[in-house]
């Protein structure tokens, strides 16, 4: 049996009580003893998320975006 605790977080990464002032919420799953099992972020505000890529030219992220495009097997979800 698990429990869920929701924390509302503003754009300054401070916890707020008012959901209207929140940029997102953290949904924290706890086990029966109250130990944290998992936390997930869910958007509630207008803050725009963005994907980021490593700037290391040797990194895989650059390979993925590079001219070769990878193999059919290397990109199964279109990431």
């Amino acid at each position: 049996m698990t429990n869920t605790v929701i924390k509302y977080i503003d754009g300054n990464w401070d916890e707020v009580q008012d959901e209207a002032k929140a940029a997102w919420r953290l949904v924290i799953t706890l086990d029966e003893a109250g130990n944290e099992i998992m936390r997930q972020r869910q958007s509630v505000g207008a803050r725009v998320g963005r994907k980021t890529w490593s700037t290391d030219p040797r990194a895989k992220a650059v390979m993925k975006d590079g001219v070769h495009g990878g193999t059919p097997m290397s990109n199964p979800h279109g990431h």
Binding site: K60, M63, K64, G66, H68, G69, G70, T71, P72, M73, S74
Partner: peptide
Amino acid sequence: NWSPVASLPRQITCLD
């Protein structure tokens, strides 16, 4: 998979 596989040309690689 081995990293170099990702930088091989797509038309010649179907490497599981």
